[in-house]
Amino acid sequence: MTMVTAGLKLLRSRHAMDTIVPHSGFSVWLTVLASVTMSFLAVFALALSVTTAQLAMRWSESLARNTTVRILAPAGQQRLQTERALEILRATPGVASAQAISPEDLQTLLTPWLGPDTPIDTLPVPTLIDVIETPNGYDTEGLRLRLAAEIPSAVLDDHERWRRPLVDAANHLQRLGILSLGLIFLTTAIIVSLAAQSALSANVQVIHVLRLIGARDLYIVRAFVRRFTRRAFWGALVGALFGMAAVALIPEAADTQGFLTGLGFQGWTWLIPLFLAPISGAIAYLATRLAAFHSLKGMA
């Protein structure tokens, strides 16, 4: 709470200390522009991280609880083996439900590949059984062995083969997003630090006068820190709002569309980019403070 109060105090619009250092120089625009730009980019890195985190979680959860049993038996055996497989599955602890996919649903599933007019009942298409697990799941290896023993044509597919790379890719993208955020914050710190050093160099005479009349280094540092923190905060807030607007303009995701159309924030996650402003302010505070103390030491 103390930090929040101190932060709000720092952002207060007018303070006697604000007038000590003249308001001029390119460092003003450099800091504001850098904060706007970096914050704008950070919104996209955040959107990527949030979206991929949600995707990874959704894929992990939905696919982990869903299994398919595929049966391709010789002619005349298909129905019998399917029924036996359903019996085994329904009796297996950890299986919530097992349902053979109807010919109509199968037709819908295969239409994108075979076209709408292909009579799939004339093709050697396997019967698919959709298995939903309980939250505790079942013993995959045990079920696989039992199916192999009793129904040799049955193949248990727990989607691990293609689920794992997808989840790994989503997690990797999330890490890249976080790394990008880190690099953006680091770049912000470097730019603010350089701008602060430039401002200090441009105000050597002001610093000389302040020292002459008994100002401690901390007082001089505060005059600069306050200014740069405010610029970074407001710049980042503007950048974040622009970034959020840009993300909001990305078309909504639909079932038939891909991953990119789903990039963005949902629900409460829209609040996350707003934290970029205080984070940028805090970064500017630390960067300016370090740069100012370092520069003042050199001016001693």
């Binding site: 003249p22 009349i213 401690r216």
Partner: peptide
Amino acid sequence: NRDEIADARRRIGVVHQDCNFLDHL
């Protein structure tokens, strides 16, 4: 140290030929 020198300067008034004012104040 620098802070102690700053404190000592508060007990010394310095008048320069060029005055050393902050022109924006």
